[in-house]
Write a protein that binds this DNA or RNA. Structure first.
Lengths: 125, 125, 125, 125
DNA sequence: GTGGTCTAGACCACC
DNA sequence: GTGGTCTAGACCACC
């Protein structure tokens, strides 16, 4: 794992797990790495990992069992909500960036459509 | 200035100048800080700044006048191109992120339109 | 402030604020001590205070304003709920302790009634 | 053993033995650990243990036989008294806490009855 | 000054 | 081994 400094590391850890959940790479019941293990691999402080894990527990994404480890608990409804929330974030950020480059809404729509066309062609080729 | 570690710092320096140009915060003829000055303020290595300035000179964004400093030279056509290039980057990143969340192209379009509507309402209110 | 070691310190900090809220000693809008100030007075680590404050923010008991401080936000409905929750905790603990001393429910009721009578007499005297 | 700092440790040691007696975990004639042994296990100062043991001897809860060790001597009447004393303490603490939360005597009775009902249901289920 | 994040590392409880 | 709490202290952003 690599981290930006655009956001706190603990947020990025959480977002990363959210993405894995949304993509189905992690499912309810799965065990995620222990705090220490994660901290070592990602080379961050165990406290930072713990903060991420604790927040995920509060939002009922995971359940920790002392002495056992941490397990995914997110249910389908929660996944839907998470997916929507993350999309809202990504889209909001996109609109903000495009506006800061001086594009109007209609230009944004136009350029997006154009680029999607190109991308799709590229994928079909 | 803040730097990610998603991209080399010298690229971020260049992109930052590009954004300032595109937004009109910098205009042809404007003097930009000396390399040493920039390096101190942004607390990065002077060599990094030098690389950024050299590349900007190569692409004719700036012109260095010995003993005088470095000045913006970008002309309108170049601005248009830069604006498009940056937009392409932003849009590409956006599509990639949305796809990684499992959204299809038509869902992306739909959600974007939806969120734009909400944002506009908010701004008019 | 003095702390037990029956519960984590950050919990005791929270409970203490809850009690003050329930008793009306603190009201919405009131500023509570800064994290540093609290930490110094209570002689605990600032991180411990921050954890308490952060959790209080999550449960919307307080609102922190960067550079300004932390302010009470609890509304009347929340106070009612908090009061009930704390009562449930205190009563549960009481029942558990009495049972561990070998008392039956009817004995607990009897002894409590008896002691209340004495206390009331004492207060009237 | 765990100790609060709400009460002197020697009192907590005594109370702990009282609880064990009341619950029948210790019976007349049983040998309790030597002072040195207790001090090491509980990691408290031997003087603290000595004070606790001395007071228990004075109140005839235990008897020390030189070269043999310390033995429980509590008789049934004493147990009854101890049980009542401890109950008085627990109940007093309970009333104080509930009052500090702003509950009246009749509310305390009502809530206790309510919670006992729930607890009993839970246990029967 | 205020709160926010992070590292380093100790010590504990539960398994 | 696992997670939970706490201290000590650095550095940052916002005011």
């Amino acid at each position: 794992m690599e981290f930006d400094n655009t956001q706190p590391i603990y947020r990025q850890i959480i977002d990363n797990y959210k993405k894995q959940l949304i993509r189905g790479e992690l499912r309810p019941g799965d065990k995620i790495p222990s705090q220490r293990e994660y901290a070592e691999k990602a080379r961050v402080n165990p406290n930072t990992v713990q903060r991420a894990y604790r927040e995920m527990e509060v939002m009922q994404m995971v359940e920790t069992q002392r002495g056992q480890g941490t397990f995914i608990t997110a249910n389908p409804e929660m996944l839907t909500i998470m997916k929507e929330e993350m999309a809202t974030g990504v889209i909001g950020h996109f609109i903000k960036e495009m506006k800061s480059l001086g594009f109007t809404i209609s230009e944004i729509n136009h350029l997006l459509a154009q680029q999607i066309d190109k991308t799709e062609e590229g994928e079909l080729a």
